[in-house]
Every structure is written in structure tokens, then in C-alpha cells.
């Protein structure tokens, strides 16, 4: 373990004036909180990090990505994750680490070998600060991707409209990922509810182009293979015009202007089947 003289001096200083530095650190960080965290919480967090940092410095010098800094790093991960969830910006999160420099700067300026110690410390803290920002970004990405997933789940409900009739109100643009989810849910719904008819309502779909039509067709074909009749409803006047202008062919798939009209048709077909059954023809 090769510790430069500067590092030894730094260590002594950090150990002997621990309380003073931690207090200074907490004070400077507390200024940026704007009421999102209590000062006591910050004091506890920073105190733990300071102790871990001190331990790591004692063990093996200034290499911030080394093994002996693993405790410091795990504490920083926790800190940046919490900060990201509470809506702190990356700058504010990184400043938590960088503000320790400021606190130590004043103490080190006074000592004879201070400049060297300060530079070493600055390098270490820069490294740890960058690490914090990285973690912050990673957490944010996790939050975004889990929200996207939730949105996907929420935006594709399959509802039972009548005995034997399922409704799928689509809201938002249809891409291939969503089509997959819609298809899965619809087919499973058909199986679970033993339905013979499905109405796909596209009132909430802002635009229908060839791509979206292709996805709709796929869904209808899949439902047909499970033995269900599909009706596409909720086609607005502008959409109807676009469909014709683009030359999209829905083939023999029934389309209706409103959900009510589609439901009427589906009920009529179900009625026909049940009356045949009553007459003993089925």
C-alpha cells in the first residue's frame, strides 16, 4: 500500500476534524434541498458516506474504482437512487459529493502540503461524483422503462360488453409492440369468456395508416382463427376518408361507424344463433 505523504496528511486531517467536516458538508448540501429531504436524513446519509470514505482511504489509497471503495460506492448508489426518485436533478445529486471538496478546501489551504492533498482528493471525489451521476441516470432510465410498461398494460383493456361479446377500446397509436399486447389479451379474453364476437373500437386511435391497418388486420385474423367474429368500430369520418385515399382494403372484415352499431350487429347474430338453438335446430 503506497500512500503519498499528501494522502497521509489528508487522512490525519479528515480523521481528527471529522465532526467539523461532516457538519460543514451537511450544511452546504442542505442549502440545495429546497425542503425535499430533512436535514437529519442528510446528516445521517453523509455521515455514513464520510465514515466509509475514511475507511477506504485508510485501507488502500485513492483509487476510487478499486475494491476497497465498494462500501462507499454502494452507499452512493443508494443516495443517487433516492435522489432520482425524489426528483433531484443530476447536478444537485452530483453536488452532494462535490461539495465535500469545498469543505476540505478551507482546511487544506492552511496546511503547508495542502495543494497536493487537495488535488489528490479532488481526483478521487471527481471520480465518485461521476459515478453518482451515472447511477442517477441509470435509475431514471429504470423508472422511465417501468412507466412505459405500465402504460402499455393500462392502455389496452379488454372488456366484456355482453354475454359472448368482448370489446377492445384502443387508445393511442398502434405499433407492433402494442399490437402484440392487444392480440395476446384479446385472444386470452376470448378463451376465458367463451366469446364468439369481438368488437375492436378505434375511436381513440388518432390516425390510421397502412401500418396501423396492417396491425388491425393481423389482430382480426388471429381472433378469427380462434373462431371469433371481429367487428372494427369507431371509424371517424376523416379516418374513413384516409382509409379510402390510402387504398387500404379491410376485405370481408365488418366495419361500423360507432360502437353501438357494432354491438347491435353482434347481438343480432347471437340472437339468431340462440333462436335456432331454441327451435332445436342446433
Amino acid at each position: 500500500m503506497t500512500q503519498g505523504e499528501g494522502s497521509a496528511e489528508l487522512l490525519d486531517l479528515m480523521e481528527s476534524r471529522r465532526d467539523e467536516f461532516v457538519q460543514g458538508w451537511v450544511r452546504s448540501v442542505s442549502g440545495t434541498l429546497r425542503g425535499r429531504l430533512s436535514a437529519a436524513e442528510v446528516a445521517q446519509e453523509l455521515g455514513e458516506i464520510y465514515n466509509a470514505l475514511l475507511g477506504a482511504l485508510k485501507q488502500g489509497g485513492l483509487a476510487g474504482r478499486g475494491d476497497h471503495f465498494s462500501e462507499v460506492r454502494s452507499l452512493l448508489i443508494e443516495l443517487s437512487r433516492n435522489r432520482a426518485r425524489q426528483g433531484f436533478t443530476p447536478t444537485e445529486t452530483a453536488l452532494c459529493v462535490f461539495s465535500l471538496k469545498q469543505v476540505l478546501e478551507e482546511a487544506l489551504v492552511a496546511s503547508p502540503d495542502g495543494a497536493r492533498s487537495y488535488l489528490q482528493l479532488a481526483r478521487l471525489l471527481d471520480d465518485l461524483g461521476l459515478f453518482t451521476v451515472e447511477e442517477h441516470a441509470k435509475t431514471r432510465e429504470e423508472i422511465i422503462s417501468s412507466q412505459a410498461e405500465q402504460l402499455l398494460e393500462l392502455s389496452t383493456p379488454v372488456v366484456k360488453l355482453w354475454d359472448g361479446i368482448l370489446g377492445v377500446p384502443l387508445v393511442g397509436t398502434l405499433d407492433s409492440a402494442r399490437t402484440q399486447v392487444v392480440m395476446e389479451k384479446l385472444l386470452q379474453g376470448l378463451l376465458d369468456s367463451n366469446s364468439t364476437h369481438a368488437i375492436i373500437d378505434i375511436t381513440g386511435v388518432p390516425a390510421v395508416d397502412t401500418q396501423v391497418a396492417q396491425h388491425l388486420l393481423k389482430t382480426v385474423v388471429a381472433a378469427r382463427m380462434m373462431g371469433a367474429q371481429c367487428i372494427i368500430s369507431g371509424i371517424r369520418p376523416q379516418i374513413a376518408q384516409t382509409i379510402v385515399a390510402l387504398g387500404i382494403e379491410f376485405g370481408d372484415i365488418a366495419t361500423k361507424a360507432t360502437l353501438a352499431a357494432a354491438l347491435h350487429d353482434a347481438l343480432a347474430e347471437i340472437d339468431e344463433a340462440s333462436s335456432l338453438r331454441k327451435e332445436g335446430l342446433l
Binding site: Q180, E184, M225, G227
Partner: peptide, 14 residues
């Protein structure tokens, strides 16, 4: 008449 196709099968065929 083909009956009892599973959802996963229908999706694969499509």
C-alpha cells in the same frame, strides 16, 4: 371446422 386453437398458436400463425 378447426376448433380449440390456442392464443399462442393463433399469434404464431399470423
Amino acid at each position: 371446422v378447426v376448433v380449440g386453437m390456442r392464443p399462442a398458436v393463433a399469434m404464431t400463425l399470423v
